[in-house]
Design a protein around this nucleic acid. Structure first.
Length: 880
RNA sequence: GGGCGGUUAGCUCAGUGGUAGAGCGCAUCCUUCACACGGAUGAGGUCACAGGUUCAAGACCUGUACCGCCCACCA
């Protein structure tokens, strides 16, 4: 492993990160071969689309997966993170066809074969881009296992899934009303419908009664579908229309008589309470029509244009036809009114075209039987969601799951392995059978449609490992450990993986599902390239912040409490500063590590060493526990606070007192070196999962065991002792230092002025302070410090009480007013506090009902505050 | 319409029923030999609102308001 390249004062991530990543790759650290002697840990990357580039959401999601993988590897697991990409049928179609449209072409001009060639070229060209971006983020994926959903072996696995479901009768075929995109010419999933509010009109249209019967007025948003009306429906209890049910009314323009029917699904409060029934163009009408044995009429074609049967409207676009029909109705005197109306329209998630309810031949998976075990797996806790609240979201949805429309009228994807014969029979198989088993016919054609992208990605956790072959990989890594993803694809993907895993492997595909927050910009708006609010993570990385900074900034805000994470560049500045802090702390440590060898041991640690070692032990616990419970922000915050506040601001400053002492003994030096090294080296390991590059760079610059921090061991927190005595004593030192600094600042004393404060302490604290007087004197710049017993007199001083120690400073005549102000302020605060404590202790309810420890604590505090009040009062009097 | 989050310092957010916290920003001071991408000291909060439970509520319960997300979509 290379030596650190630079010792510059500011840390430069750009000169470190790509180099370190290359080394890791070259040494194969991210490849996890099957090894039955070790416990596996595996994560399957939520596969990005080949058309995609890395966005901030990926940056967060990948950081989480990478830190989990790196952490578990350091804990000794055989950790494997499998990367891959998705062919993403419709998404890829949309971008490719947009490209074709620029040349004035459609995919139909090219034909299926040519288009697929074009698609493969596209995949070759853009499919690799996202991988290089992933690598730039430091993600330690097992690149030997990278998988594309249309790789031959994966393709075969998808076929196997379909065939097995087909054979067990879980798949059916037929004409169904689905969400249809008239631009992409395919069905789309109900989960991929983007509902958006829109301003439109509600037309009130008069349908004349047949045979001189009464007229009825219906309200509709879609006059163009009037031509396909087959009935008018009212609520059975609606008194207004009681005498109308069973009679006929005339559909305007079409001049067809249709029945008035009664159905409970009609809302009498909406519009006029009368609903036109158009089973060919509306899902509710389709249901009602089917229940009343009404025919289905269709007046729009697959492109959303009026059919040839519509006479003068023939060929008109649906929106054009809407106005035309409305005009004609108006001319015929049949429009009672037209009012503005706000409603929601469903748009194609990919191309934003308004979708049509449309009836075509579709393939479906009967999903209830697959859902039942998937529900059980979560109920029984075999699959756990983090944060836990997503469990309910999952269960609620699964309990109301609808059959799954898996066919898409696209070309780029897995073609459905079914053959149709001329007599309407169909049969499944990888190859075309010689003749139809049902009728013996030989005129067989393959199904044109392909499978929904989510059908293929549902097999991701096992198809990537060689299934249906019983490979060693599959046996070893399945089921995987954690699935980390965003909440937007819980229904589309997570539920389907659980169903497929249970169906085909007999086991849920993972034990834990971590749902990461959604990354928003600093205004709280969704990031979107089209809105110009998208932020390219790689831009920030290359601007000089580096991948580590981005990873840490995201991790620091990756809490379970909130579903969103607001991101702004300021956050990267903060982490850049943090990295610089770490970098310079390491430089400092290195400067003082001359002649140090860890093997020599540290001898007897001083109190300050014991203190930082104890704090480090706590850090190791916090970080480990936080990672274990998916509370990544806690881990990051603990590291940040420890490194900056405790290690740098306090320990390094304390240790300088010893290091710069003219009479530093070699034993003391060795013990300092050992502590500096132990804590920094260990902290780098604790930080490595979040910031892999800088920690490697620093770790390599320190004495270390092993060839890389990537494969170093995780600090075993149980082996690190907590030293409460050292923590308490150094806590007192810190409080005293802070008190002196505070007095100095309040009095506006120049920094050059060496102070001569007096500390008054009880015997125990006094002896501790005496042995640590140099630390206090140096850190507080108070060379004239004296330490006295509890009873000594004080005159003309300002003072405070820090952790039970009186801190006093003689005050000059000119400083008196400021000193008095300070004392009065402190006294006021103490009295206010005391009053609160008093009120509690005077409350018999409190002393009777609160736990003994709490009451004791309150008494102790009361005593302390009384002492404090007394002393402050005396200081004030002494000040004169 | 139903469900789920959120509402804490100017901003972004932590916060296990028992003395309200961090980072940034702000103010004052410090170019001391790891770091000015730094150090020190401060100012700044009726924890959205209203009830309730409790000796004790920012935390628990019930409502309300606002912000956001998801589901269902009355044509």
């Amino acid at each position: 492993m290379a030596e650190p390249k630079t010792d510059a004062k500011p840390y430069d991530p750009l000169s470190v990160e790509p180099r370190r990543y290359q080394e890791w790759l070259a040494r194969g650290y991210f490849h996890a071969p099957v090894d039955p002697s070790r416990e596996p840990y595996s994560i399957m990357m939520p596969l990005p689309n080949i058309t995609g580039t890395l966005h901030m959401g990926h940056a967060l999601n990948h950081t989480v997966q990478d830190l989990l993988t790196r952490w578990r590897r350091m804990q000794g697991r055989n950790a494997m993170w499998l990367p891959g990409t998705d062919h993403a049928g419709i998404a890829t179609h949309v971008v490719m066809e947009r490209e074709l449209a620029k040349q004035g072409k459609t995919r139909f001009d090219m034909g299926r074969e040519t288009f697929l060639e074009f698609a493969w070229q596209w995949k070759e060209k853009y499919g690799g881009l996202i991988y290089s971006q992933i690598r730039r983020m430091g993600s330690g994926c097992d690149w030997d296992r990278v998988t594309f959903t249309m790789d031959p072996a994966y393709y075969d696995a998808v076929m196997e899934c379909f065939l097995r479901l087909y054979q067990k009768g879980a798949i059916y075929y037929g004409k169904r009303m689905i969400h249809w995109c008239p631009k992409d010419l395919t069905s789309v999933s109900e989960l991929e419908v983007d509902h958006q509010p829109v301003e439109t009109s509600l037309w009130y249209v008069r349908y004349r009664g047949a045979d001189r019967g009464p007229d009825v007025i219906i309200a509709t948003q879609r006059p163009e579908t009037i031509l396909a009306d087959v009935a008018v429906a009212v609520h059975p209890d609606d008194e207004r229309y009681r005498n109308l049910v069973g009679r006929l009314v005339i559909v305007p323009i079409a001049n067809r008589p249709v029945p008035v029917i009664a159905d409970r699904r009609v809302d009498p409060a909406f519009g006029t309470g009368a609903l036109k029934i158009t089973p060919g163009h509306d899902p509710l009408d389709n249901e009602i029509g089917a229940d009343h044995d009404l025919p289905v009429m269709v007046v729009l074609d697959e492109g959303g244009r009026m059919t040839p049967e519509t006479g003068s409207y023939s060929g008109m676009d649906r929106f054009e036809a809407r106005e035309a029909v409305a005009r004609d109705l108006d001319a015929a005197g049949l429009i009672e009114k037209r009012e503005p109306y706000k409603t929601n329209v469903g748009r194609c998630d990919r191309c934003k075209t308004i979708l049509e309810p449309y009836i075509t031949d579709q393939w479906f998976v009967r999903v209830k039987e697959l859902a039942a075990p998937a529900i059980e797996a979560v109920r029984q806790g075999r699959v756990r969601f983090h944060p836990e609240r997503w469990t309910k979201v999952y269960l609620d949805w699964m309990e109301n799951i609808h059959d799954w429309n898996i066919s898409r009228r696209l070309w780029w994807g897995h073609r459905i392995p079914v053959w149709h014969c001329a007599n309407g029979h169909h049969m499944a198989g990888r190859e075309a059978p010689a003749r139809c088993p049902a009728c013996g016919g030989t005129a067989l054609t393959q199904e044109e449609q392909i499978l929904d992208t989510w059908f293929s990605s549902a097999a991701w956790p096992f198809a990537t490992l060689g299934w249906p072959k019983q490979t060693p990989d599959l046996a070893y890594f399945y089921p995987t450990s954690v699935l980390a993803t965003g909440r937007d694809i819980i229904f589309l993907w997570v539920v389907r993986m659980i169903m497929f895993g249970l169906e085909f492997m007999g086991d849920a595909p993972f034990t834990d599902v971590y749902i990461n927050p959604t990354v928003l910009n600093i205004e709280g708006k969704r990031m979107s390239k089209s809105l110009g609010t998208g932020l390219d993570p790689l831009d920030y990385v290359e601007q000089g912040y580096g991948a580590d900074a981005l990873r840490f900034a995201l991790t620091l805000r990756c809490s379970q409490g909130q579903q969103d994470l607001r991101f702004g560049e300021k956050m990267l500045e903060d982490v850049r500063n943090f990295n610089n802090k770490i970098w310079n702390a390491a430089r400092f440590v290195r400067m003082h590590l001359e002649g140090f060898a860890p093997s020599a041991g540290g001898g007897t640690p001083a109190l300050i060493d014991r203190w930082i070692l104890s704090r480090y032990a706590r850090l190791a616990r916090t970080v480990t526990e936080s990672l274990d419970t998916f509370e990544f922000d806690k881990a990051a915050r603990a590291l940040y606070d420890f490194i900056w506040s405790e290690y740098c601001d306090w320990y390094l400053e304390l240790v300088k007192v010893d290091l710069y002492r003219s009479s530093l003994e070699s034993a003391r030096r060795r013990s300092i070196q050992h502590t500096l090294w132990t804590v920094l080296e260990g902290t780098m390991r604790l930080l490595h999962p979040i910031m892999p590059h800088i920690t490697e760079e620093i770790w390599q610059s320190l004495p270390h065991q092993g060839e890389s921090i990537v494969v170093a061991s995780w600090p075993e927190s149980n082996a690190l002792p907590i030293d409460e005595d050292a923590e308490a004593r150094i806590g007192t030192v810190m409080a005293v230092v802070r008190a002196i600094r505070s007095i100095r600042a309040d009095l506006g004393l120049p920094p050059a002025a060496q102070l001569a404060p007096m500390l008054r302490a009880t015997a125990d604290a006094k002896s501790m302070l005496e042995s640590h007087r140099d630390y206090v004197a140096t850190l507080a710049r108070a060379s004239g410090l004296t330490i006295a017993g509890d009873g000594s007199a004080t005159l003309g001083t300002v003072g405070t009480i820090a952790d039970g120690v009186g801190v006093l400073l003689a005050v000059s005549e000119t400083d008196r007013p400021r000193a008095r102000k300070r004392l009065e302020g402190e006294l006021r605060a103490a009295r206010a506090h005391l009053e609160r404590t008093r009120r509690r202790l005077d409350d018999p309810e409190f002393t009777a009902r609160a736990p003994v420890e709490v009451v004791e604590e309150e008494r102790r505090r009361d005593q302390e505050l009384r002492g404090r009040e007394r002393l402050l009062q005396r200081y004030l009097e002494d000040l004169g």
